[in-house]
Write a protein that binds this DNA or RNA. Structure first.
Lengths: 245, 245
DNA sequence: TACAGCAACTTGTAATTACAAGTTAAAAAC
DNA sequence: GTTTTTAACTTGTAATTACAAGTTGCTGTA
């Protein structure tokens, strides 16, 4: 399929620069462009996709920000090495972070509506507390080995039919994006190295008191005032967490 | 001093958007704008600094990328302040009472020129290997407690008098920026939760096999082809690592 | 008073034009 | 054949214009 055709059929609701970004991103991730390759020049992209340079540059800026390309004046946009570890420190859900690996998701609990926990690990706005919390516990396995034990908390605001959706082998980020048009724009995270509790050790199939990585994340979205939260325990014995900044 | 005067006297070699970025950045960090405040609107900044919107927006984009502001359509640019520093480097306490944390730096080794280690944790370009490595081990303490054990590796290329500089209580990033005009533009990092070796445990004053966080970082700069490296061990018993994304 | 609607803001997207500056390879000079 | 110069690329910076879309507060109406 030609770039241009694929470009035409992308979501018409998205801005132009975003559509181009999506196309280029998928091409990089799918190996159409390989590490070290040069992307088509900005002017080429302009003519191929019928855009102007500021728009094309906006799309490329996003790719730079994501670490997928590096630009060099006078030369071009160079496709950057893909992270070999698990990229969770930047804007990505665990599903994208794991890429094409053999990822399996196992639901432990939920999704179900319940009250927010007392002394929640991030301060909660009052409207969140009133409307309750969609709670979900998931285990992420790579090649059969459990790597992440993930507890998600979403404010139960304007997410119709959410608890009836299946999340086996599906990305939470993608579900939010496709069904609710919620896109992740950023967030905060805290992390510690802690000894595994017996419960965590059980989930991650390691010995109690072995070091695990604990992340608490607040994830902001394009819905004004809508953030959700995640508490994540990672077994880093075989895979490192990676991030770009 | 008026914004405009301060703006005039900034480095004439920098592009306009960068100068505006520096001014706004320092104002945010110095508390001229406080958390939650709105920056002047883009159009106001245009007239005050004699720039056009694309240029002003470029400057604001950098601040967004750095996490210093958040923008909201229809409203404005909201100062987000909080952790300075890049990526995951900033420290925030688990207790709220850490505003007066005092950071102390203790040099363990170096800075000195030596050969790069065999099997370095990131692949090294050939020119780096030939010119050798500026090596430095530092211990960072907060309120007298050791938190970080940091090993830095810098390519020994065009950094006159570097090994004679004092790094007690000084930031490596700031030194590079002020004396060598090297600015950090991004990088990669990998991290694990590992049991402390006896050596690491000694430095961090914890028991061996207690969990510590291990980061390996490659840090890119505005000098084309110049990156440096850091291997970092963190005691996260009392303080979490925090980051924005 | 309460509310609807409008006006005046804000940022977001996008085309257009121009020139500066770094890179590369072919052409010209030696 | 080797070196130098040049021309044709590349991305970087920046002004200008226009409209879309979200937010806020004021104003006129009920």
């Amino acid at each position: 399929m030609e770039d241009n055709e694929k470009y035409q059929e992308t979501d018409p609701g998205l801005p132009q620069y975003r559509k181009l970004y999506e196309v280029l991103r998928s091409h990089i991730l799918n190996g159409v462009y390989r590490e070290g390759d040069l992307l088509p020049s900005e002017n080429e992209l302009c003519t191929v996709y019928g855009l102007t340079r500021p728009t094309v540059r906006h799309a490329l800026d996003e790719l730079v920000r994501e670490g997928l390309i590096k630009k060099q004046k006078g030369k071009g946009s160079i496709v950057h090495a893909l992270p070999t570890g698990i990229g969770i420190l930047s804007v990505a859900g665990t599903t994208t972070a794991l890429g094409d690996r053999n990822l399996e998701t196992r639901i432990i609990t939920g999704p179900e509506v319940r009250r927010w926990e007392e002394d929640f690990f991030f301060p909660l706005p009052d409207p969140y507390i009133e409307s309750g919390c969609i709670y979900m516990e998931r285990l992420r396995l790579v090649n059969g080995k459990p790597l992440f034990y993930d507890i998600s908390y979403l404010p139960n605001i304007n997410l119709p039919r959410f608890t009836t959706r299946s999340f086996e082998n599906k990305s939470l980020f993608d579900t939010l994006r496709r069904h609710y048009r919620i896109e992740v724009t950023g967030g905060e995270q805290r992390l510690w190295a802690i000894p595994a509790t017996p419960e965590i050790a059980g989930y991650l199939q390691i010995n109690p008191d072995e070091p695990v990585l604990h992340l608490e994340r607040k994830i902001d979205t394009n819905r004004v005032g809508y953030s959700f939260y995640s508490s994540l325990y990672c077994n880093t014995k075989d895979y490192a967490l990676t991030g770009k900044f």
